[in-house]
Write a protein that binds this DNA or RNA. Structure first.
Lengths: 228, 228
DNA sequence: ATTACTAATATACGAGTAC
DNA sequence: TGTACTCGTATATTAGTAA
């Protein structure tokens, strides 16, 4: 019936077992969890075995207190919910992991077109080094990246020049999560092309990131992308 | 491995499926949940069957969006966590359910003692009707009531009069959750006696609650007790 | 009353398979 | 590639029992 281990821990916390020892019997706890007495008893054993609660068994029940480790576990779930519900109104970020790959040199060409450069300077506040740092996303990050699809980001308009059309894109400020990268302005650029792969992100920055960070193809990189 | 249904729903929400349809395959979702592809697939079926998500299955995956019902479920879990963690710093409350029972008339005697009345007036802001409304707590509420043990409440000092000692107690403001009870000042009184039963609460109020609410023995009543 | 076994049964999981 | 079966096995649950 219940949802298992953390649900049990959560109920104990709700009953105040984080603040002080809580006196409760397995039968009473079973009613709280809406399960059998045996399962309630077993849950308490499990939680104790995993160091999430401390118990003192007495004749007519047990005194229970949630440990630091237990509180940490609850906190991490709480933080997930905070991200879910506060993320809806703004300042949110996504962390992606991927490995450095060489593009086809296309990035270099596109990023330095005058029509783009002017918009980058005005909307991002910097003129990018002519070239993009391409990241091939790891499994889990591909799905996370799709969060960007829901966001409008910073719009870069399409324009015509040299007798052709250069498509629009959207940008998100980001941060390379690596030592010596604090304060380096970066952004991911996501072209609006309908058939753009979803397992790659292109990063631009005023500096040559590849050189500054000594990156080789295949190196893993972690990027924090601002959704707001 | 995972924690089941709501954990799956939570992950979907974290991937942004509350805001817009999320494209994901069972295999990808399996990696997020750290489980098998089959289980991931089954989870999505279950969530759909229970109306927590809506699905659109296409050739290369599925589009998923969390329904209103799903959002409500997540919200209710989020609120539990908020109660756990914000409750720690103050303005918290506990809702108890119990049935009205007749006391032994003791309440009437004690509550009207001058030494108590003076303190009630000063510390609670009202002079109670001479008599207490006794609630025999329901199963689940007995455990919840123990949260009051962790709180100091509003202290009523012991005193001597009529050649004997009248023991101390602590009070908590409360609110009767029933129509026509808005704004009626109430408080629960918990004597300090060591052998006081834990399945009963005594409520005082400037008015005769029994009469005002037309209560009979056995009627169920819901009370919201302020812990701060 | 408790907690916590044991053993029978119910449920959940994941490899294999179909489409 | 996908989703979603089946089916053998692992895990979870609970009635009964012991202490």
């Amino acid at each position: 019936m219940g949802e298992g281990k953390t649900a049990a821990l959560r109920k104990l916390a709700l009953l105040g077992a984080m603040e002080r020892p809580l006196k409760i019997s397995s039968a009473e706890f079973a009613k709280v969890l809406e399960t059998s007495m045996q399962t309630a008893s077993r849950r308490l054993q499990e939680l104790e075995r995993e160091g999430l609660i401390r118990r003192d068994i007495v004749a007519d029940g047990q005194w229970i207190v949630v440990t630091e480790k237990g509180i940490d576990l609850l906190k991490s779930e709480f933080e997930e919910y905070q991200r879910i519900f506060s993320g809806m109104e703004g300042n949110e970020s996504v962390e992606l992991v991927g490995s450095v790959v060489s593009g086809l040199g296309e990035g270099r060409y596109y990023v330095s077109r005058e029509g783009y450069v002017r918009q980058f300077r005005e909307k991002l506040g910097f003129v990018p080094y002519p070239g993009t740092l391409n990241l091939l996303l790891r499994d889990g990050s591909v799905v996370l990246r799709r969060r960007l699809d829901a966001r409008s980001g910073i719009k870069i308009e399409s324009f015509t020049a040299e007798g052709r059309t250069f498509g629009g894109s959207k940008c998100f400020f980001c941060e390379i999560l690596r030592d010596g990268c604090d304060g380096v302005q970066c952004a991911v650029v996501i072209p609006e092309r309908t058939h753009y792969p979803d397992n790659v992100v292109e990063i631009i920055s005023p500096v040559n990131l590849r050189e500054k960070l000594g990156l080789e193809d295949g190196d893993e990189l972690r990027v924090k992308i601002m959704l707001s």
